[in-house]
Design a binder for these strands. Structure first.
Lengths: 324, 324
DNA sequence: CCTCTGCCATCAGGTTTTCCGATTGTCCCC
DNA sequence: GGGGACAATCGGAAAACCTGATGGCAGAGG
């Protein structure tokens, strides 16, 4: 269809229709009478329809103009709406970021960060890829991610890494178990217990194993589960337990179905790293997003270190009731 | 609001959004890549929002573009609708006509004429004014009507008149009365009867009176009513009768509530005139409308002359059952 | 009857916008 | 490092646009 017709034509037509006078329309639209006259002549030619009867004292719209007018009002209305809607993005710079996160981060930290980020940068396409450290490292290496958050200890060939946050590890068990929620526990006191761990190719698998070996903790039974959602559900409905980063638990202890306990004797924690492609420096947008992530991760982690827990709860024996 | 934005901008934007490439959009819109690029730069400047990220292998829309796109599609949709709707009027020449008619014409003849006329000339503003002969003549004289149809015999000062149509007069009474529908009646045989007539300043008042006088018809009681709708309703619900032009009755005898009888002995009829302002000749549109009116009026009148009635009904005595 | 006024159409011109072709710059892939 | 695909930019030509002036027309008023 012929797009020779501009919105200016339309609004001039509307003015002429409503004023029933080209002269008045010209005044209203900051144009001259001759300009309006030409516009209307072109419009009529383009539509192949006479829109106005030129009569003494002004013009009177034809039935065709009546029809066209109704539709034009709608066109202008929708156009104004489009303008208004788009201003929502006006202040924000445009861009896109693609971030890789482990499930520990996506489960609890991501949501408020997304909220905040999209509010201050609505015109940015945010893409989050959830995966495990090996896969994330590889994707970063390929330059497909702006950055990723992974547990430290990953092989870091082809990526630059920097310390991101230290978060305590916590023991997660079903809420109806024998542990008192939030009370620090010593794993040795619980042994032997049933433990769900990630698969052998996951960094955290080794971390947990070496902690137990070093501290002479005997594990009753070991189950390798490589699904975070599955692990949580399984732990919630059985007497199996899991060791997970605190950063993924809500401050209030999270799901009603789960019991969360900080691990002491000795404290157990995991360091997370931010890795990025070697070549290009992080974009300002990615940097801002990483910053928000870090703030939130630190905040959540802080609520889980044993110091702050002691502040909100009266001191209690370090070792807890007999295991099993 | 700024109307710098033309529909061309919008459709180019839509093309670029869908193609995710300025080059492809240019091809689709019969433009050059550089043109598209400039259009999009202007659009972004105008909206104050970045719409595309220029990346390797094309462009990718920002969230702002997503929003704008949805609204733009609507704008184009409504615009296309406006174009389509207006083509309905394309073949017709524009104009306006203002016609004055007596109630006899508007009640039955007008409707099919309007239908036909608006179909062949939809872009014409038709205005019908219903009134009585005196008032119509005056308005024609003032040049406010293209023409009017009035009973002949009106004073024709300041107007040009020509014969329009001859239509029989018929007697109208309630359906539940003593007359047989459609049977010709001789008024003298019914006398004395109760008759509703127009007011004394109406031509028809005199016509009817002189007919009765000439043919020695004694009228029992006379009631002057200057409302056509009121007359019909009154006649339908009482034993009063009225003498009306056949041209205003439907061929099938009209309302179920009314009984219609041609008047014979002698036949009674009225001639209608078409009057127009002295100075200007009738516009082609007005002439066409008058022509259609005449055709329809002739057709209806013809069905009411006593000849054609005898064809559809077996012959019957001319004088009917005793009046009252 | 003539003039005066208000309105629209038209015209000629200058100005702005639009459009195009060519060129440049960038990135990626080979 | 060269080649290909794509977008940005630039300069000039073409088109569109706007304007101020002029003309025609129809009423109103003297």
């Amino acid at each position: 269809m012929d797009m020779r017709c501009s919105l200016r034509d339309i609004s001039i037509f509307v003015a002429a229709y409503e004023e029933r006078s080209f002269t008045a329309a010209a005044e209203r639209e900051n144009a001259t009478q001759s300009g309006v006259s030409q516009h209307m002549r072109n419009l009529e030619y383009m539509l192949g329809v006479q829109l106005f009867l030129r009569e003494r004292g002004g013009v009177t719209p034809t039935p065709a103009a009546d029809s066209f007018y109704r539709n034009c009002m709608e066109v202008l209305r929708v156009y104004a709406l489009a303008r208004r809607d788009v201003t929502r993005f006006a202040k924000s710079e445009a861009g896109e970021i693609h971030v890789g996160l482990m499930p520990s981060i996506t489960s609890r930290v991501l949501s408020p960060v997304l909220d905040r980020f999209l509010q201050e940068a609505p015109n940015v396409n945010v893409r989050i890829t959830e995966s495990y450290s090996a896969s994330l490292t590889q994707t970063v290496q390929a330059g497909e991610l702006d950055f990723a958050i992974v547990p430290s200890g990953s092989s870091d060939t082809g990526v630059r890494g920097q310390f991101f946050v230290r978060t305590p590890e916590v023991l997660v068990s079903r809420a109806s178990g024998e542990l008192e929620p939030l009370a620090p526990v010593c794993l040795r006191a619980l042994a032997p217990f049933k433990l769900v761990v990630p698969g052998g190719d996951n960094i955290r698998h080794h971390t947990i194993e070496s902690y137990c070996t070093t501290n002479d903790i005997r594990i009753g039974q070991l189950l390798e589960l490589d699904t975070m959602l599955g692990t949580l559900d399984f732990v919630a409905h059985s007497d199996w337990m899991a060791i997970l980063p605190a950063v993924m638990m809500a401050e209030d202890g999270g799901h009603r179905a789960l019991c969360v306990n900080p691990i002491v004797g000795p404290d157990m924690h995991v360091d997370l790293m931010l890795i990025e492609p070697i070549r290009k420096p992080m974009s300002p947008l990615a940097a801002r997003f990483a910053d928000l992530l870090k703030q939130e991760a630190q905040r959540v982690s802080a609520t889980w270190n044993t110091e702050s827990l002691r502040l909100v709860k009266p001191a209690r024996p370090v070792a807890v009731a007999p295991g099993r």
